[in-house]
């Protein structure tokens, strides 16, 4: 049975360790040293801005405001900026809001997309082709072009400044339907037929045969949807005005100008906001890289 289980159609980015050197080639050939030097340079350039932010967050406000290139301020390292940010408490609330709303958005998006994708892959109904074309065509519609009528709709439904108003418009992701349909198409139909002969209903087959087989792809798209929801700015920024309902990206925006020149605090806040996803990335690097690569391609 495991042989029949389809695998992700995209290459597994993390398993392959890259093209290794030719047998017999010295690990210190000039070309390899040159490539290594180039790689180190680029990695340093890419890490520096973040290191800078971290370094500033650990300075006193006076040291932070004096500028310069030194990573450690004259008064040494201090966690003052972090403690004053955490004492204000809003960051916790925003992070919590971001976390659970992203989780709900991810769950609803993947659930409704998987059900629809299964219908498009396996079931027969009138207008199937046209409906699918319409959904795929909607990928070209930029969400930013819909903010005005969507906001108007939320006003009419009384959902402005509510969690549902924040979450619901984010659950329609046509590329996810497309990716999952492609995956379901590759699942051998015999597996389902066997269950159907035993008298299982469509829904039963979907939950007990199809979904378990699709765990890798469901994981991949969930990661992608979660990252998108976690980082989404424009819609949450428009729909939420209440400080206690804000997500992390929106909350941070409100204090950029409020804090003005307290650079250490601003950086401490940026670092704190970045921390959750960095930690998650360190633990789930393999799955995240695979999820993003698969979904990024699948949108095509």
């Amino acid at each position: 049975m495991s042989a029949a289980v389809p695998t992700l159609t995209q290459p597994d980015v993390t398993v392959s360790r890259g093209r290794s050197r030719k047998p017999g080639e010295s690990p210190y050939s000039p070309a390899r040293i040159l490539a290594f030097a180039a790689l180190v340079t680029m990695a340093v350039i890419w890490l520096l801005p973040f290191l800078w932010a971290v370094a500033t967050a650990f300075k006193t406000e006076t040291d932070a405001a004096s500028g310069g290139l030194s990573l450690i301020g004259e008064s040494g390292i201090t966690t003052e900026a972090f403690s004053s940010i955490l004492a204000q408490g809003n960051v916790y609330i925003w992070a919590l809001n971001s976390f659970w709303t992203s989780l709900v958005i991810t769950f609803i998006t993947v659930a409704i997309s998987a059900l629809a994708a299964y219908a498009f892959s396996r079931l027969d109904f009138t207008g199937k082709k046209w409906l699918f074309v319409a959904i795929i065509a909607s990928i070209i519609v930029p969400p930013q072009a819909l903010i005005i009528p969507l906001y108007y709709q939320m006003l009419a439904l009384n959902l402005v400044d509510t969690y549902w108003g924040l979450m619901l418009p984010q659950v329609v992701m046509a590329p996810i339907v497309f990716i999952l349909k492609k995956f379901f198409d590759a699942v051998p139909i015999e597996l389902e037929d066997a269950a159907r002969v035993d008298g299982a209903s469509r829904l039963r087959v979907f939950f007990s045969v199809v979904l378990p087989l699709s765990r890798p792809i469901l994981g991949a798209v969930s990661i992608f949807v979660f990252i998108q929801a976690w980082n989404n700015f424009l819609w949450p920024f428009l729909i939420i005005n209440d400080t206690f309902l804000m997500t992390l990206p929106v909350g941070l925006q409100t204090v950029i100008s409020a804090y003005g020149i307290q650079y250490a605090q601003v950086m401490a806040q940026a670092v704190l906001a970045a921390l959750p996803l960095i930690v998650v990335f360190l633990f789930f690097q393999r799955q995240i890289v695979k999820g993003v690569a698969t979904t990024g391609f699948g949108g095509q």
Partner: peptide, 10 residues
Amino acid sequence: LLASTVISQI
């Protein structure tokens, strides 16, 4: 993976 606001602040 970082939110736009974090990028902008940095």
